[in-house]
Amino acid sequence: MDLLYFAWVREAVGIGQEQRDPPAAVGTVAELIGWLSTQSPGHAEAFADPAKLRAAIDQRFVPLDTPLNGAKEVALFPPVTGG
């Protein structure tokens, strides 16, 4: 799946986009965050506290307990601050 990161999540991971194939046991966005946090020191920093993160699946905001169900694009980011 394509993963996109924004704002300080992007900065902590060190890249804005990557392609990853998480193991089958990763079923939800929250589980994806947990798995990503084991992938590098940068990932560990970005994904240490899921309470600070929000997500979108295929460009729609979703709660973190949402099943991934074949998602093509998952974005992880802090709460939005536009306007």
Partner: peptide, 22 residues
């Protein structure tokens, strides 16, 4: 717009930058 659109704001104070919290 403040809550439903994916924008992120960073404040600059001279050379220092910090992400704005929601």
């Amino acid at each position: 717009l403040k809550t439903d659109a994916p924008f992120w704001k960073r404040e600059w104070r001279g050379e220092d930058a910090s992400w704005v919290e929601a």
